[in-house]
Design a protein around this nucleic acid. Structure first.
Lengths: 234, 234
DNA sequence: CATCCCTTTTTACATTCTTTTACAAGTTCG
DNA sequence: CGAACTTGTAAAAGAATGTAAAAAGGGATG
């Protein structure tokens, strides 16, 4: 799901303009005009990144930074005015990750946002130890290099779509999978009745793995329902 | 080899005058009029010492200090104006090694430079030994010298961009990285759909590290998504 | 400062991959 | 059996990638 950015800024014009352009970049954006609103928002939907104006009525940006940093590892970028160097430094010492000076350059701000979000998601990225290979029948699917190896070690290269589809089959042996489900498994895409992508891909996979593609042993057609991956050894 | 000093100063007069007199003292001197230029310079040829003006358009001296200090143990001397005591103090807190106030006395500055460089070179032997090299498969990526060494010890020189890209790959093995992300990792640059820089660089890297560049084992293309670094031993 | 050399980026075109289209062939069920 | 529907598949269209070569930078040198 899209990453969640919360803008905390009491000037409505700046806030809304910023929110609009961030939404255009496909971020999920919430707006708060003060610390209280922000807390409500993130209680409901935790933020990945806070964009906080340093000068606000009530609880200011530095206080927010200190409090949030103590509570979580959310990314924090401060919006400061150009001449407020001291605030900037203190902000960083309090745990903000970055700052931009107002009036800010859009592209610079966006670059910093993207950058920080990437760093953050890297940290939380639990390196899921994927099994490097899956063996079925005589075939070995090399997950790491996304290719297929036969018993003798010969490499059968797969395109991205072929690999994704075969991978989906390997994960669901002996189960009938609808075209809809398969399309979802390989690319999170919506299926519509005259989408023939899966059929074409099945045809190509059969050419690569079946002894006799027109009389398949591995990928079986189930008329009206979908396809069934039927490896010999399950 | 002579020690490398980088002057980061946007006033050309001050900068060039300083550079000239430092060159007379047999230092290797590079000039940068802003943070971007500085980064390019030290990417190509790491600095022993940065001389940074604290007041500059764009990224200022304090920011540079913070960033560089986080990345390395390079020596940093700040050039401050006489009345900016706060900046000086903050600068030192952020990790600058020393500062001089403008207008500065030549002999004083040179004394401080000599002093700091001496302290650094004392450390540098130790630092070189612990300087990390990354080993993956049969390759060793030498961070210090920015080059690649194979199992037999043969050196494969890399250009700056090639090194940065390979370094990014080394840091993210087994993960699909989009072109956007890669460009960000190697130079904090915005990606646009018809930027082919990454593709070209991947092509060049493949020529250097793949047995068969048109059938790569290490850097795998994932159509529509990006590239995947697949070392044999993760 | 002009010039050279090396690196990086852009451009242009060839190639490959994905999806769609079109029609042939197969299946179901009255 | 035959109409209605589903599947197989070649081939076209549309995108993305590979890559040589031109253009643009950038630093070094005289």
């Amino acid at each position: 799901m899209a990453q969640h950015i919360v803008i905390v800024e009491d000037d409505a014009v700046t806030r809304k303009r910023l929110a609009a352009s961030l939404r255009k970049q496909m971020y999920r954006v919430s707006e708060a005009e003060n610390a209280g609103q922000m807390e409500e928002v993130i209680a409901r939907d935790p933020a990945d990144l806070l964009l906080v104006d340093i000068n606000m009525e009530g609880k200011d940006g530095l206080t927010i930074t200190r409090e949030q940093r103590a509570a979580s590892k959310v990314g924090i970028i401060l919006l400061t005015s150009r001449d407020d160097q001291i605030d900037r430094i203190i902000g960083l010492e309090m745990g903000a990750d970055d700052y931009v000076t107002k009036p800010f350059d859009r592209r610079e701000l966006f670059a910093r946002i993207k950058n920080l979000l990437a760093r953050i998601s890297e940290l939380s990225e639990v390196r899921q130890k994927v099994e490097p290979v899956a063996q079925v029948g005589g075939w070995t699917l090399d997950h790491l290099r996304r290719r297929l190896v036969d018993e003798s070690g010969t490499i059968e290269p797969l395109t991205r779509a072929e690999f994704e589809l075969l991978h989906a089959f390997f994960r669901h042996p002996g189960v009938i999978l609808s075209r809809d489900r398969l399309l979802d498994l390989i690319q999170h895409r919506q299926w519509d009745p005259d989408n023939r992508t899966i059929d074409v891909l099945v045809g190509r996979l059969r050419k690569k793995i079946e002894t006799n593609p027109s009389n398949p042993d591995w990928i079986i057609t189930v008329h009206g329902e979908g396809y069934l991956f039927a490896p010999p050894d399950i």
